[in-house]
Design a protein around this nucleic acid. Structure first.
Ligand code: ZN
Ligand code: ZN
Ligand code: ZN
Ligand code: ZN
Lengths: 132, 132
DNA sequence: TTATAAATGTTATATTATTACATAACGTTA
DNA sequence: TAACGTTATGTAATAATATAACATTTATAA
């Protein structure tokens, strides 16, 4: 069990929005959606996003510049993330596969690097898009 | 052996620059460096980068918005890439590990996704930075 | 309470990437 | 060669993503 982080006002507004959306959201789309709640500037959004990423409540999908709610239990605070991305419909989901995560978390090579974190993005076609 | 792509003028200028740099380069830094060669606009750079990525001569480091010359043999035309990134000095190198690439290329789960491509980024500290 | 850290508000600006449109070079085949 | 389609180039404008700098407020905790 990890520490509970109590979210601040802006963090909560933004996390709830992303979480309810069920998929990845882009920063300026988030901004647009929370303006009625008083969050008016990009920086307010980015600060909340930074914090939410830091504590593992959301992840950034790097190839899409988008943010998605963690679908596991905050992923060891975001040190090990894997996503599946449909290149047709842009559906994204978080992969939760213990074999994969064990394999990657224990990966090492002879480069002398000490790895502490990874992010993996798989691309392809989802079930729906395949059958079209 | 894969098809040889003969690079166009702009593509060659930009590939040579990235390749010689030995590390990741950002688009606008590339632009700055090739202005004396007549490449004046961002779009000229991005078009060349797009093509070079497509044919596997370079890869995009998504978490850094930067581009690096392929250190293998054009990585099955960029369908399977893995990088090691030092979070201290930002040194990046391409991981060439056949076990890892086999494992990931054959990865599948019960989601119904058909995976055709992946990108993996490991983060940590390189040898030098560790010992500081 | 008082000090410290964390979060917020606001303006301006930097960085990364694309749209739209016009032109030129290249490769193929009639 | 001529005509055609494809790829690459040039140029201007703009869109999309992200951060710097500074002032103020709120939460936490010694
Ligand atoms: Zn997660
Ligand atoms: Zn799909
Ligand atoms: Zn490569
Ligand atoms: Zn380093």
């Amino acid at each position: 069990m990890q520490k509970e982080h109590s979210l601040s006002k802006n963090q909560k507004i933004i996390f709830d929005l992303i979480d309810k959306s069920g998929g990845p959201m882009k920063a300026y789309s988030i901004l647009f959606n929370v303006q009625k709640k008083g969050i008016k500037a990009p920086l307010q959004v980015y600060r909340a996003l930074d914090k939410l990423v830091e504590i593992g409540k959301i992840h950034k999908i790097e190839s899409r510049n988008a943010f998605i709610a963690c679908q596991n239990s905050s992923c060891q605070v975001s040190k090990a993330t894997a996503f599946s991305i449909c290149e047709s419909c842009e559906n994204v989901s978080e992969i939760s596969n213990s074999k994969l995560s064990k394999y990657l978390s224990s990966f090492s090579d002879n480069s002398g690097m000490k790895y502490s974190k990874y992010n993996l993005e798989f691309f392809g076609l989802c079930k729906k898009c395949k059958s079209k």
